[in-house]
């Protein structure tokens, strides 16, 4: 890749892509979505909801297809199906003896398959590849607006309920015993998860959105023992991944979603190896 290496001169590497409207938009939306998913990823990893994130992000698929077919904003359809899948998981778990992880796997693949079938049956201009793998470079203006609104809602909710959600993840029993309604917090967190999954699929697509929802949190978790710092590090690593991912994707002509998630994975690997306290090399012990 000679162009890529040439482009590594830092200033043109950063500036040149900004001359394109689609690149400015892609960078803006990927950063925003990255920051929001990064913030949420702390709660997902601490609560142990990685599989739930995977489930919700896949389950929104039929919602997106139906919404497009009906001419509604895709986010509404996605949200309905995201929350619906969670409700269904809860219902099946409660009413049957099947274990939770089985129910989760069962419900989300069912929803996802339904989405695939609907895409092939409903004649529309939906590009399956865009839904599955994201296309921040080709995102439309109306999609940008929807995504901004979604991100705004998620940030507001997570800011207001920040402490309560942390307590809920840490010690739900105590939260309940001091009169906090943990049932509401549970569904609030799931709703926020559905919204973030919808936002995330814009940039990296349904298949990889779960990475946006857990990897930054996991990376940050290796770097600190403070919740506040963990959220900060998660957001920073997530934003960095989005920016780097989009730039690398532009310069070396690779899939944007894959590029963003790959950068996230590399950042996790770096933390896994070199984190001062919890990295496997335990650098601070050597000094």
């Amino acid at each position: 890749m000679p162009d890529f290496i040439l482009a590594l001169k830092p200033i043109p590497f950063l500036i040149e892509p900004l001359s394109h409207d689609f690149m400015r938009r892609a960078l803006m939306i990927s950063t925003l979505v990255g920051a929001v998913c990064g913030l949420l990823s702390c709660y997902m990893t601490l609560k142990g909801w990685a599989l739930m994130g995977d489930a919700v992000s896949h389950a929104v698929m039929p919602g997106v297809v139906v919404a497009y077919a009906l001419g509604l904003p895709f986010s509404i359809g996605a949200f309905v199906f995201g929350v619906g899948s969670v409700a269904l998981i809860g219902f099946v778990k409660q009413k049957s003896r099947v274990k939770e992880d089985t129910v989760i796997g069962l419900v989300f693949t069912g929803f996802f398959a339904l989405g695939l079938v609907l895409v092939s049956k409903i004649k529309s201009n939906i590009d399956l590849m865009h839904i599955l793998f994201g296309s921040p470079l080709g995102i439309s203006n109306s999609d940008v607006n929807q995504t901004i609104v979604i991100c705004f809602i998620v940030v507001i909710i997570l800011t207001i309920f920040r402490r309560d959600l942390m307590l809920y993840c840490f010690d739900a029993t105590h939260a309940r015993s001091i009169g906090i309604n943990t049932g509401i917090l549970h569904y609030l967190l799931l709703s926020v998860l559905s919204l973030a999954a919808v936002a995330g699929l814009q940039t990296v697509g349904i298949i990889l959105v779960v990475a946006m929802l857990i990897t930054p949190g996991a990376t940050a978790y290796l770097l600190t023992d403070r919740f506040d710092r963990m959220t900060l590090y998660a957001i920073i690593s997530s934003i960095l991944s989005s920016l780097l991912g989009v730039y690398i994707s532009y310069w070396s002509d690779i899939e944007t979603g894959g590029s963003i998630v790959l950068v996230q994975t590399v950042l996790f690997l770096l933390a896994f190896l070199f984190a001062p306290r919890y990295g496997i090399l335990k650098l601070n012990k050597l000094n």
């Binding site: 601490l46 993840c169 840490f170 010690d171 029993t173 023992d225 919740f227 710092r229």
Partner: peptide, 12 residues
């Protein structure tokens, strides 16, 4: 709570 009831690796 009993010690076993809480996640001791929680960053707090």
């Amino acid at each position: 709570p009993q010690n076993e009831g809480v996640d001791c690796s929680f960053p707090v």
